[in-house]
């Protein structure tokens, strides 16, 4: 089983993702530089957070045209699991591998804090092993995480069960106070129609050890490891 972590100029959570996969979960993991045109023989791809290309123009707008993104699109089209975290989510949106768009946080501030997530669907490679009825405590760290979808798209996402995570309070309720960025419908993560591509603003790779304040991020990596194990 092999994981690939993409590296763009300006990625800064690539090493965190590598650490989570390689050292915490003990899987073979390698970095894939954005100029590579092939992913090699990896079984899953992480598009990590950071500030690819300095967020110039729009977050993720330039990174999506990196050579490696063609390979990611091919990999995704064949059903390969792809997880975009934070800036990685933004890149997947710009690449149209996921629907919708990202705007600046409603209150205009960069927000770095622990949030609570409700897993709305376990039907993805990254959420299948998240325990039922358990809220995940995972940090967010972003200035542009205000997910936006027009009414029709939002309805489609809901109808197709493509909303994967929502920001909630300690009671598990989707309330405005639990929303750190103004995202429509408190959306923190979504998947594509085929369900193999997932994007989320919170950072599961920063919640894999007690010393980091939470280990809830592990569930996502355990899920995909399990998914790959059974598909190999």
């Amino acid at each position: 089983m092999k994981f690939g972590v993409l590296v763009f100029p300006g990625s800064n959570c690539d090493h965190d993702a590598y650490h989570a996969l390689k050292h915490i979960h003990g899987t073979e993991t390698r970095f894939i530089w954005h100029k590579e045109s092939s992913l090699g023989d990896v079984d899953a791809v992480i598009v990590p957070g950071g500030f690819s290309y300095g967020d110039y123009l729009r977050s993720g707008a330039i990174a999506r045209f990196s050579p490696v993104m063609n390979a990611v699109a091919d990999f995704a089209a064949k059903g390969g699991p792809v997880l975009g975290i934070c800036n990685g989510f933004q890149i997947l949106l710009e690449a149209r591998l996921l629907p919708g768009t990202m705007m600046a946080n409603e209150h205009l501030r960069f927000t770095c804090k622990q949030v609570l997530l409700k897993t709305e669907s376990h039907q993805t490679p990254f959420t299948s092993k998240v325990p039922e009825n358990t809220l995940l405590e995972i940090p967010v760290a972003h200035g542009e995480g205000n997910y936006y979808a027009e009414k029709e798209l939002l309805k489609e996402l809901e109808d197709q069960d493509q909303i994967i995570f929502r920001y909630v309070n300690a009671q598990g309720d989707t309330v405005p106070e639990a929303n750190p960025n103004g995202s429509v419908s408190n959306i923190a993560g979504i998947c594509n129609k085929a369900r193999n591509v997932v994007g989320m603003m919170p950072h599961p790779e920063r919640a894999v050890e007690k010393s980091l304040g939470s280990e809830d991020g592990r569930y996502l990596f355990e899920s995909v490891i399990n998914h790959i194990t059974y598909s190999l």
Partner: peptide, 8 residues
Amino acid sequence: KLLANTVM
């Protein structure tokens, strides 16, 4: 292609 995100 690049400069504008016509969704928004």
